[in-house]
């Protein structure tokens, strides 16, 4: 039984709390600027370096011009397309397909992942298949998709889905598998039924793994789309980045080829930086996980 008067215990406890609480540094404006510079400067330097080497190699004329054009020639090609607005039409054709395909993938893969994670028979039946599909390059589906659906947007979406669904579903499965076993028990003790437990405990607890799956799923969607666009050409499909790249190949126009590759890269990096990195950071930060990329 406590022998001290209660307010002494309270004060003692408050002191203990103050000492034991993890200390967090508050970032001031100067520190934030420094951090920003630390993040932005290295990749910029790397980029400048790569272009400088490229310029040097071109100047040394190791390869003929049609194999290695000057950086400026590529820039002129890009600038011309930008000027006419053609780039935006090309980007839109590819991006809207990739995003739409990715979103359909999420809608299909999420319940699929839940089923595989929570129903043992389903896991044994299609778990290995999902993992196998994940390592199958989805470009392998292009011939089949064209034979099934013709050179249509449907064929493209089928390839994109076959690329993204296994990654997203597997990400969710590993997210659920990594939930500490105490959490579902806590849910039960707090009075959560099956559905409530899935909504309030299972899904939020699996979120980091799920997000990693989404990120990989997006990368696979984007790759699959490019593969499909390069191979499957028809007026019905319009001109996306893949088609633009293939144009460069058929006209032996290296500046176009490099410009197309640069655009594909820029989209990939842009989506990562604008969508996935911030989402991942806020999820990990909220949980006090230090793996958050800066």
């Amino acid at each position: 039984m406590p022998t001290q008067p209660p307010d002494t215990v309270g004060e003692f406890e408050a002191g203990l709390d103050a000492l034991d609480t993890p200390v967090r540094q508050q970032a001031n404006a100067a520190a934030r600027t420094r951090k920003f510079l630390r993040v932005v400067v290295p990749p910029l330097v790397a980029l400048v370096g790569i272009i400088a080497i490229w310029q040097l190699l071109w100047a040394l004329a190791f390869w003929p011009e049609y194999q290695l054009p000057a950086p400026l020639t590529v820039w002129d090609e890009l600038w011309a397309r930008l000027h006419t607005g053609e780039v935006f039409a090309i980007l839109w054709t590819s991006l809207h397909r990739a995003v739409l395909g990715f979103l359909i993938g999420v809608v299909i893969a999420t319940p699929l992942g839940l089923l595989v994670a929570k129903v043992n028979v389903v896991r044994r039946a299609i778990g290995p298949l999902l993992t196998g599909l994940q390592s199958l390059p989805s470009v392998a589906w292009v011939p089949a998709a064209i034979l099934w659906f013709g050179v249509t947007p449907t064929a493209i979406y089928v390839v994109v889905l076959l690329g993204s669904v296994p990654s997203i579903a597997n990400g969710l499965v590993s997210g659920i598998d990594q939930i500490p076993p105490i959490l579902p028990r806590v849910g039960k003790a707090l009075g959560a039924g099956r559905m409530a437990a899935a909504r309030h405990i299972l899904l939020p607890a699996a979120l980091p793994g799920y997000l990693a799956g989404l990120k990989q799923g997006w990368a696979f969607s984007w790759r699959s789309l490019m593969a499909a666009e390069i191979i499957a050409r028809s007026p019905q499909l319009g001109k996306g980045l893949g088609a633009y790249l293939d144009d460069g190949r058929s006209f032996s126009d290296m500046p176009t080829v490099i410009a197309a590759i640069a655009l594909i890269l820029i989209v990939g990096i842009g989506i990562e930086l604008l969508a996935f990195r911030p989402a991942e950071r806020s999820v990990l930060r909220a949980r006090g996980l230090s793996g958050a990329p800066q």
Binding site: G191, H200, P204, A205, L207, A286, G288
Partner: peptide, 23 residues
């Protein structure tokens, strides 16, 4: 339990609120 088993993505208040929400 021996571990607090708080849900790491919820604030302290939301952790306490969860069973009330479930009810």
């Amino acid at each position: 339990f021996q571990e607090s088993a708080l849900l790491p993505w919820l604030t302290a208040a939301r952790n306490v609120e969860l069973p009330l929400k479930l009810a």
